[in-house]
């Protein structure tokens, strides 16, 4: 089975983020493959190992987003596609979905399109639904477990009070939670092999998109620092912290 996995290159979440004017700074900084997407790549690789086929990584971002694709390739994916274009700076979730949908259509025929439930930098959390609609695919989302048999995908879908079992026929779009598997580390061999794997770079024009397709319909009109919470006190536990916390609970009248 052929699988497309959406991946995003994001500013390293362990480094304090910087702004570049109105937007999050994405160029000239330390970037990583979104940790949430590692679970998508791993899900793709496990399905490929069980059912054969190829895993193609699809991404949109600045040129540096190649690094995220290389990382997925070094884990074992077969090839990559990066859509990069100056006009996409500040793209909203819908434009992102349109670009990824067009790239997936151009890249081939897929039984499954996989994405994380949300990105770690923007956490909009709705792009996969838009992508499913644009590709006319059913969606099985928030997967905690994945089972593919005889052309059907079945998942345990996380809910507020537990989980639902949801299934549909392939082709389909699947979103994975961070708990779905244990992403593998790239081996040295994998890192070397990744350097030779094909990565195509496409522009918006290469995808046949123009005008209204990529018109961004929301923009940052202004920004202000959030009202900070009252600066709290930080103490080091010397054996009396439990008493301090209990005092606090009494002041708050909860005990």
């Amino acid at each position: 089975m052929n699988i497309a996995v959406c991946v995003k290159h994001i500013p390293d979440p362990n480094v304090p983020p910087q702004m570049d004017g109105k937007y999050l700074k994405r160029e000239g900084i330390q970037g990583v493959l979104d940790p949430g997407d590692e679970f998508g790549v791993e899900a793709g690789l496990l399905l490929k190992e069980a059912h054969g086929g190829e895993v193609t990584l699809v991404s949109m971002g600045p040129a540096a987003a190649q690094e995220a694709i290389r990382r997925g390739l070094s884990m074992g994916a077969d090839k990559g596609v990066l859509v990069t274009d100056d006009t996409l700076k500040g793209a909203d979730a819908l434009v992102t979905a349109r670009v990824l949908a067009a790239a997936i259509k151009k890249a081939g025929q897929f039984d499954l399109v996989v994405a994380g439930v949300e990105s770690t930098d923007g956490y909009t959390g709705t792009m996969p639904g838009s992508l499913a609609e644009l590709l006319d695919l059913p969606q099985v989302t928030f997967a905690k477990t994945i089972e593919v048999t005889d052309g059907t995908v079945k998942v345990n879908r996380q809910t507020a009070e537990g989980y639902h079992v949801v299934e549909c026929s392939l082709p389909a779009l699947l979103t994975v939670t961070a708990g779905v598997n244990e992403p593998r580390y790239a081996s040295f061999k994998g890192i070397m092999a990744a350097k030779k794997k094909p990565v195509e770079t496409w522009s918006v024009a290469d995808l046949g998109l123009a005008g209204e397709d990529v018109a961004i319909k929301q923009d940052v009109a202004g920004q202000t620092p959030a009202e900070e919470r009252k600066a709290g006190e930080v103490i080091t536990d010397d054996g009396s912290a439990a008493k301090r916390i209990a005092d606090f609970l009494q002041e708050a009248k909860v005990i």
Binding site: R229, K230, G232, I245
Partner: peptide, 8 residues
């Protein structure tokens, strides 16, 4: 963002 932080 804590009102009371305990390092421990």
């Amino acid at each position: 963002i804590s009102d009371l932080g305990v390092v421990g």
